[in-house]
Write a protein that binds this DNA or RNA. Structure first.
Length: 232
DNA sequence: AACCAGGACGTGA
DNA sequence: TCACGTCATGGT
């Protein structure tokens, strides 16, 4: 029937549908699984689908933390470029990063935009990471770091430290609003709570759910008017 | 050629 | 609390 509109799917149904459509994503993307200087948009070469034992090293853990900062309001392809340069400069560790001058960091992360602010954010993050001394940070202390907001804190917790922390981002909001599962202007914690309540409390589910929403949004929510033939 | 991209912070009501 | 301006490069 034309014009007929199904009831909005539940979060569990969204997860099932997206997983079935796109398969496991394998986040967080890592340079190790990328290899070359990234030039193409939509590159998913950094993913490691089906493998959930990442990060395998402290270096990878810190790379994820840096990526979480650099990707703030920024396309991932440009973050990859910045990460690639940092790697070439051996700056994907707190020590390596600390050995660079501000102007060197600015140049390295230039493709990721906001290079002045993000240089400071990386400094703050590196200091925090070092002070942690291997301990898993809780959410509150991450939020206390300058430059780390709710999404960045949750991303670091979920993907760098393997904690069951639900991540909400602009894509999550856009999709859930479009499906009328939340009102416009909902707060971060409201969206987060909705996702938590609608999904099994499972690390892999949390990691895949967010990654799947990003993949789906890149395909169907890139430009308005949004046309989501998969979920509605 | 606007518009958008896996936000967060500072400011003034 | 909250709306708004700011930060900046690169793709479409």
């Amino acid at each position: 029937m034309s014009g007929a509109r199904k009831k909005p799917p539940t979060l569990a149904e969204i997860y099932e549908t997206l997983l079935n459509a796109y398969g496991p994503q394998g986040w967080w993307p890592l340079l190790e699984h990328n290899g070359t200087n990234p030039t193409k948009t939509g590159s998913i070469t950094g993913y490691h689908p089906g493998q959930y034992d990442f990060p395998k090293t402290e270096r990878q853990r810190f790379e994820i933390c840096i990526g979480a900062i650099l990707t703030q309001n920024t396309a991932w392809i440009n973050v990859e470029r910045a990460l690639f340069v940092l790697e070439q400069m051996d700056a994907l560790t707190p020590e390596g990063l600390g050995a660079l001058r501000d102007d060197q960091v600015r140049m390295a992360i230039r493709p990721a935009g906001y290079f002045n602010a993000k240089t400071r954010k990386l400094r703050e993050l590196a200091a925090f990471h070092t002070a942690l001394n291997g301990r898993v940070p809780d959410r509150e202390e991450l939020l206390a770091v300058w430059g780390v907001g709710p999404e960045t804190a949750d991303s670091i917790r979920l993907y760098a430290y393997g904690q069951k922390e639900m991540v909400v981002d602009a894509y999550t909001r856009r999709i859930l609003e479009h499906l009328k599962l939340v009102q416009p202007n909902s707060k971060y914690d409201d969206l987060k709570g909705l996702c938590i309540n609608g999904l099994p409390e499972d690390l892999i589910v949390y990691q895949e759910f967010h990654a799947l929403l990003v993949e789906h949004a890149k395909r169907c929510y890139a430009r308005r008017p949004f046309q989501d033939n998969l979920l509605r």
